[in-house]
């Protein structure tokens, strides 16, 4: 175990003078479910294109399954499965024809690896004679995953598989990924949804072509470094502004049904916050210390990067 599935060192890529990837490095272990988490424009797709040998980096090296992405691209293409972000299959072919075609180009058949896709393909098999264009979003996604899996890849690259998909389908999709992982496939996935980070073994938080953190979600959360308060009051709309006015405020932002608050002083307590808000005319104030989520960490890291950028 713990063999390296991806060994990427100092990868750099620019488009027309704009840096898309900024000399970044990452190791991904075999059998790992690894997530690249970040918004549009963070460089996730560019990174996936480089790892799947579709793009040449400007500098740096990357090994996938032990093969160099530049020189040994042929070997990599035999062992990886890839589902691009806007992958929408052949709409005019039926479910089965799509799957057959993708099995065919890898010189295999559906029957040969049926055990691998049974769990996923089984759910859409009743509709195998339906054109892919007529499937619902969730079913399309399952078919796309089946197509990426049908040749039994060692490493699976999924670029934003859940973007634009509803919460139920997303949950089901992640459950499928967990079962695939149990079969020993390395799964590398990218997503703009922060809450999905918690479902990965390890994640890299990406922003503007840089990794802000690479670790297990638990460690990233543990390294948050501030007490995080969830604040509510009868008047939610002006609440952030009122909190902003507290001395030594680190960050204030809405989060779900509350407002999240960080103070640079370790000893600021919930009572201090309540007192401050009452002075400012807020009623029914509740303040709870809560555990940060990956989204809280992401925002804090973004803030750090910004101040670091401003200082240089």
């Amino acid at each position: 175990m713990n063999q390296v599935a991806v060994d990427m060192r100092e990868i750099r890529k620019s488009y027309n003078g704009t840096r898309a990837l900024n000399d970044i490095s990452v190791h991904i272990h075999q059998g790992e479910l690894f997530g690249f988490i970040g918004p549009d424009g963070a460089g996730k797709s560019t990174l996936f294109h480089i790892l799947t040998t579709l793009l040449l980096p400007d500098a740096g090296t990357a090994l996938v399954g032990g093969f160099d992405t530049v020189r040994e691209y042929g070997k990599i293409r035999r062992i990886v499965g890839y589902m691009p972000g806007r992958f929408s299959l052949y709409q005019d072919l039926t479910v089965e024809e799509n799957l057959k075609f993708f099995a065919g180009i890898f010189k295999t058949t559906i029957a040969e690896n049926y055990h691998l896709i049974k769990d996923i393909y089984g759910q859409i098999e009743p509709f195998k004679n339906r054109r892919a264009g007529q499937l619902s979003g969730g079913m399309k996604q399952k078919l796309a995953l089946s197509c990426a899996l049908v040749h039994k890849p060692e490493i699976l690259f999924l670029d934003e598989p859940t973007t634009g998909v509803d919460a139920v389908s997303r949950k089901e999709f992640w459950e499928m990924l967990q079962r695939l992982k149990a079969q020993g496939i390395t799964i590398i996935v990218s997503t703009p949804y922060m809450d999905e980070a918690a479902l990965c073994d390890r994640v890299a938080l990406m922003q503007k072509g840089d990794f802000m953190a690479i670790n297990t979600p638990e460690v990233i959360v543990a390294n948050f470094g501030y007490r995080l308060f969830a604040v509510k009051s009868a008047l939610m709309y002006p609440l952030p502004a009122a909190l902003e006015a507290m001395p030594d405020t680190k960050a204030v932002y809405r989060f779900g049904d509350a407002v999240h608050y960080l103070n640079t002083h370790e000893d600021k307590s919930a009572e201090d916050i309540i007192r401050h808000l009452q002075v400012h005319g807020h009623n029914e104030v509740t303040v709870n210390q809560v555990n940060p989520t990956i989204e809280d960490c992401f925002m804090l890291l973004m803030k750090k990067e910004e101040t670091a950028d401003a200082n240089t």
Binding site: G38, P39, D40, A42, T163, G164, P192, M194, Q207, P240, Y253, R254, E295, F298, M299, M302, K303
Partner: peptide, 17 residues
């Protein structure tokens, strides 16, 4: 209609403000 797809959490919140 899904106005905040794909943007970072900070920008998403600015949008909601």
């Amino acid at each position: 209609d899904e106005p905040t797809g794909g943007v970072d959490p900070v920008t998403r919140r600015q949008f909601w403000e």
